[in-house]
Design a protein around this nucleic acid. Structure first.
Lengths: 116, 116
DNA sequence: AAATCACTAAACCATATGGTTGACTATTTC
DNA sequence: GAAATAGTCAACCATATGGTTTAGTGATTT
């Protein structure tokens, strides 16, 4: 992990914690969409989706390009990569623990320490 | 991704969206800790940390083992793996898009289509 | 048995969230 | 230029969140 603000991670994971927002990301994976297109599959109002999109945008998971009156939305894989790396930081550490554990077991079996 | 409930992902990402909870996970990476130990570095009350730990527990990021009056907490890397896979699902799709794009470019250069 | 320790439970509070509706702005179409 | 379209903004509401404090439970120590 490079130099990522904790508050960036807050926003990132928070944005990912809502099923509507994850669904929007899924749609964006299949290509660019407008706000209207993104709101179509949902029962809730376009205004509600607009809010979700703003949250994704502020988490930098989504980019918006205004073309006249329509807004073209695309996914930003960079932000996803940051979230992934953050998680890997934890699992990697844990894997190291496993290695240390295994190494300890091995060395104990080979030459058990007696004191200190 | 196997068969993960959307609500599980909600809880997972939500649990990861708080800096206190991520800090707790960091501590657990260095080994088992009790609730008291985990609460020590923070300015907030032990009760507040207890709540955070419950959230991590319900997200299955943390396991608790009661030994007498103390609770030993450990990290559960399985849950982290699920979150990681979920994110990879999005980036992977996006990478495929890149591949398709590159392939299109290539085929266009080699033998430009005229119609259909 | 009394006191202490490690922790949970519950009540409370301010603020944030996820949704609604109605009004507004700017672009496009007729 | 009037109407329709694509979207935002703002006010509002019920509920969730993150913290506090006080009280309670069960294990350990003295």
């Amino acid at each position: 992990m490079v130099n990522i603000l904790s508050s960036d991670l807050d926003n990132l994971f928070y944005a990912l914690s809502d099923p509507t927002r994850r669904q929007i990301l899924k749609m964006l994976n299949e290509g660019t969409h407008t706000i209207g297109e993104l709101s179509d599959p949902f029962k809730m109002s376009l205004q509600a989706i607009s809010k979700h999109i703003k949250i994704l945008e502020s988490a930098k998971l989504l980019n918006r390009k205004k073309l006249g009156r329509i807004h073209e939305c695309t996914i930003n894989p960079e932000a996803l990569k940051i979230a992934e790396e953050c998680i890997q930081f934890y699992t990697q550490f844990w894997n190291n623990q496993l290695d240390v554990f295994a190494a300890n077991l091995e060395s104990k079996n080979k030459s058990p320490k007696r004191s200190k």
